[in-house]
Structure formats: C-alpha cells, structure tokens
Design a protein around this nucleic acid. Structure first.
Lengths: 133, 133, 133, 133
DNA sequence: GTGGTCTAGACCACC
DNA sequence: GTGGTCTAGACCACA
C-alpha cells in the first residue's frame, strides 16, 4: 500500500487518508474501477482504528470518488469523477487565499507562487503510470 | 474593522482571525508598525472571548508577524516580515498538493489551477500601496 | 509524579512546569518516547487547571521537546532533541550575563561562578543512565 | 548613558534597568559613590515612565546596591556592596538549574556550559576601566 | 488601560 | 479516553 500516515501531524488521520487516496487517484496509481482494501484490512495494515478508515471511505463516497458495493467491496468511482462544482471552486479559492496571503507576506512573488502551484500540480499528476509497490 | 468571522465554520475562530490578519497585512490594509486593536477591544467588537483573540495574536507573534510592544500594545511587525523559510515552503507544498490532487481528479487542468492560484494571489495583494493614511 | 509547584512563587505555574519537565528530561527521569500524564490527569494531580498544563505542554511542543501523538497522547520527543540553536545561545548568554553581573558585584569570583555552574549542571544531569525501566 | 532598552522584550523594563545598572557596577563603569541620573532625568532620557525608573531604583536600594540621598541624589553604594548571601546563592542556583537543564537537553556538554559561564562572567567584568561613552 | 495568568466549566472531534 | 476550542469572569504586573 502506498499510504503513509504521520501520527503526530495535526491533520487528523482520516483526513490524511482522504488526501492520500485522492492523490492516488490523481496520479493514476488508482484507476476508475480499481478495488481498495477492505476497511478491516486497511485498518489493520495501518494499525489504526476501523472507525477512522470508515470515516475516510464515507467522506470519499459522499464526494463521489468511491463506490461501496456490497459484493465488490470498495472501488474507485468507475462512472466518471465529479467535476469542478461551484462549491469546490469556492473551497479551493478560500484555501488558496489563505496560502497566497501567507506567501505574499513572506515576500514570495506572484510568479513564484504560481510556479509553485503549477509544479506541485505536475508532481501530483506525474507519477501517473503505475507505482503500486 | 475589516474582520468577518463565520462562527459556524469548522475552522476555529482563532485560525480565521490569524488568516484574516495575515490577509490584511498582505493586502496592505495593515502596514508594518500599525497598531492592532487591544485584545479586549477586538474581542468585544467581534463578540468573542478575549482568550480567542489572545491565542490568535500569540500565534502571529511567534510566527513573527506581530510584535507585542511594551508601550504601543500590539503592532504589525515593523522590522521586516519573516521570509520564506524551509518550514513554510514545506507547509505550502503540502497544502498545495492536497488541493492540486482534488482539482486534478475533478478534471481541472494544470493551466487552470495555476491561473487560479495566480488570480487569487493577485486579488489578495490588490489594494496594496495606498489607502488609509 | 516528580513535579513540585510553588503556587506562591512569582514565576508562573506553567513556567515552573516547563522547567521541571525539561529538568526531568535532562536528568533522564524522562526518556525519549516516554509518555507524559494526560493534561487532565496532571492538572488534577497538581491541583491546578487543565489550561495551565495545556499551556506548558504546548510551549514544550513548539520548542520540540514534546510530541503530541495521535494515539499515544503526549510523549517525550523520540526523534532527537533540538540542538543548540543560535536563539538558544543568545538567550542563554543573556540570562547568564545578568546572573554573572549580580554574582560579580557581590564579590563572587570568576572561578567560583564557573564552578557553581559546573556543579549545578552536574547535579541536574545526575541519575542519567539508569532508573525506571 | 549606557542603557539600552528593548521595549518589545518580555522582560519588564524596570527589570532591564536593574540588570543594566548592576552590569554597569560589575564592569566598573559605575564605581562606588558615583552618581546616577535623577529619576526624572533618566525617565526622560529613556522615554519611559517615572514609575518605572522609580521601581528599578527602589529595588536596587533594597538590595543594597544604591543609596538614595536627599541631597546627593542617587549614588552607587559607597560602603561596600552586599556579599554572597544565602538567599542569593539559592536564587543563583535555581536559575542556573533551569539554564543547565535546557542546555543539557539540547546536547551542550558540562564543559561547554561551564566555559560559557566563565566567558560571560569575564565579558561582564572586563569592560572594567571606563567606557562611559 | 494593557497584556499575562489562572480558574471553572463546557462542547467537540478524534481514536 | 484524548487533546482542542471556546466562554465567562477574575486578579495582577506593568507602564
């Protein structure tokens, strides 16, 4: 499994899970229709609580990134990912605003900030094509 | 005062305060050396507890954005803001990664994402250079 | 617990807590990875408010002496203590300067002052290396 | 005057005053019998409140470092400085303990700590012989 | 009047 | 159970 948790991070474990699964999908490591480990398995592998994994999967299901089948178990949304909704745009902007302000105050230029964004996006996407290790 | 709180938001009040003050500095609405309202005043104005304001001010102090001056009270750091530290870069990247992944999965292109970042940065900065005095 | 507070002292309770925990680490009574009492437990044991303990723990966390672990609670930094930073050297010197001046004025010789420092250091360190497990 | 205040330090102004006067005596810049500026003058020079200077002078008088004459004004104790009292030893040790622990935890050796103490003592003493500038 | 400290008591998210 | 956040209300040192 490609998930690494930081137990002393201030971001809750379930959120780290969510993030990393989304990153997995973005990078192509997880493709539409791909199965995810069962709640029980993943929890055990990572040494964390069932509730925590459950919460993460539920959030992802609600957002439309996962499907939970009674038989197939949990799989990556095969019927097309949700698009760029109004709500998402709003959330994205709000978070970017906070980051941009902090960056600007510290003297980071618009150019650098945009480059940084672009480069991070590319990195995220780029591992596409299959490390599952 | 230019601060607006969303008491229902899941981001803690003190964090909203921190964000908005940083944005205030980034936008130039708050300039180095400018005084901030006293803890009690601001708390009363916003209808929140003084400890909450105190926490926000303290965080900003330890990050180097504010100074607590024996005579002038709390002021915006006059001796140069902290620069782009290693730690900040790391935090910025980490947050961008999460945003970029979510954007990518939803089909937002690299170009759009970078443009969005740039545009938000610009908005944040705007009105820098000439108001209020 | 090995902590003793002087509630009448002019040094704030939270600062006494910080000092004593650092001394505990220095003496080896607290080893890297060791758990500390929960905020509420310690507060109750010491007969003080939980916020006071919380403040002390937080200060120690940001200095890098403690970690707040999602599962284990609060533990002594297991990944190596922070080293002798520029800032620490500065703070140390400043405090020593004040002490040295007072000592000198009262007629304490350089030799005695240095010996005193050495001896206190040794006392602090003593019992390092082998108790409690 | 050789006094420099840091208005955004967390040590109160009156304490900074006390420290620097003691350092002045230790270094020989201020000799027994030497006059100090009047409360009013010093307050004005430093741009601080009368009360603050007054408090500092009073503390120094109580400790026996200064004399306040109705005619001569404030002078450095001419009749011999107070010696190393029990109480002073205690206070010194307590403060050194805290410093030593912090130093030890950060990996500073006994030798370095003692050297540091000695060197700071020497610096404090050394300017002896008259810069009044 | 300022910030700093402390208390008592509450709710919530996380695990 | 844990830490994190928030409130209400108090006292004190400082300037």
């Amino acid at each position: 499994m490609f998930i690494e948790l930081d137990l002393q991070s201030e971001t809750p474990i379930y959120a780290q899970l969510v993030d990393q699964i989304v990153e997995g999908i973005a990078s192509g490591a997880l493709k539409p229709g791909d199965p995810l480990p069962s709640i029980r398995n993943l929890a055990e592998d990572l040494g964390i609580n069932l509730h925590t994994v459950n919460k993460a999967y539920n959030l992802l299901k609600q957002e439309g990134f996962l499907q939970v089948h009674r038989k197939k178990g949990v799989i990556v949304q095969p019927d097309g990912m949700p698009g760029v909704t109004e709500a998402f745009e709003e959330k994205l902007r709000q978070q970017l605003r906070s980051l941009a302000a902090a960056a600007a105050v510290r003297g980071m230029t618009e150019e650098t900030f945009a480059q940084e964004s672009r480069s991070v996006y590319r990195d995220t996407i780029t591992n596409r094509g299959g490390e599952q290790r």
